[in-house]
């Protein structure tokens, strides 16, 4: 569960420019933003969770506006159908039709890892712009899946970030991130994200398959597949209100 929230928010988060990064890197980041961010987006996705025993596919529809509002409704499997999740700024609500209850995930629970997982909601709810919290610079060029990439190293410039260092591989032509690695202060790699199946949608290059992997854990990680995506559509405002949860 926590894993797909991360990805929805990952997509919501933007690489828009500000601060004093190196000109090159700043340019690259702003090009990524140009390519990927939008006023809002509606995404139909499949989430493939590779459990130790089985594989599950969750289908969800996500409405996201700007950087900090999103609402996800699960469509399948049956057990999950109708479950909704609403994120407004730094608050998070989850609604389940089975119990007809809306539960707010707040306070310490937001800060802490949830249910023994090693991810906290807080992690997933980072709203600040990448360039506001990281100094970026291009460290080398590299090929990934046959595509030429710039390798950007992002080093934290504020103390309160979850990851001290991020390394991002950006497609030189399409301005799409193809891989990202998250590091601990000690230099230990913690997480790795691989973005692939980049397609042109509404004139933008967009990765439609994302693999998210916790490097410290066993397993294949989680796949996030974007089946449909629409940018800058008319999303009514009530979608981002608590009232939508119980509807």
């Amino acid at each position: 569960m926590k894993k797909y929230i991360v990805w929805i928010f990952f997509l919501a988060g933007s690489y828009s420019t500000s601060g004093q990064s190196t000109p090159d890197a700043r340019l690259i980041i702003s090009r990524i933003d140009e390519n990927m961010s939008s006023r809002n987006r509606v995404i139909l996705s499949d989430m493939i969770i590779h459990g130790r025993r089985n594989e599950r596919i969750l289908t969800a529809k996500t409405y996201a506006a700007g950087d900090n509002r999103s609402m996800t409704e699960y469509l399948a499997p049956e057990r999950e159908e109708g479950t909704k999740m609403l994120k407004l700024e730094d608050r998070l609500w989850i609604y389940s039709p089975a119990s007809d209850r809306t539960i707010q995930i707040s306070g310490h629970l937001l800060k802490q890892s949830v249910m023994g997982s090693d991810l906290s909601y807080e992690d997933m709810m980072e709203d600040r712009k990448m360039t506001a919290i990281y100094d970026a610079q291009v460290i080398r060029n590299e090929q990934i899946s046959g595509r030429d990439c710039w390798v950007l190293e992002l080093n934290a410039k504020v103390p309160d970030v979850a990851y001290e260092k991020r390394v991002v591989w950006v497609d030189k032509i399409r301005y799409v991130p193809l891989q990202e690695e998250l590091y601990a202060k000690s230099g230990q790699m913690l997480k790795k994200t691989t973005l692939s199946e980049v397609k042109q949608i509404q004139g933008r290059w967009f990765p439609t398959r994302i693999n998210y992997k916790d490097m410290l854990k066993q397993g294949e990680g989680t796949d996030y597949i974007i089946r449909e995506v629409a940018f800058d559509t008319d999303i009514p405002d009530y979608i981002f209100t608590k009232a939508v949860l119980t509807k």
Binding site: M1, I49, G51, N54, R56, L58, R79, E80, T83, I94, S96, A98, S99, D100, R101, I103, M115
Partner: peptide, 16 residues
């Protein structure tokens, strides 16, 4: 009360 946790399959579990 509502119990909120995760199911055997890692999905969200709710029950009153």
């Amino acid at each position: 009360i509502t119990f909120f946790g995760s199911t055997m399959n890692g999905a969200m579990a709710f029950r009153n």
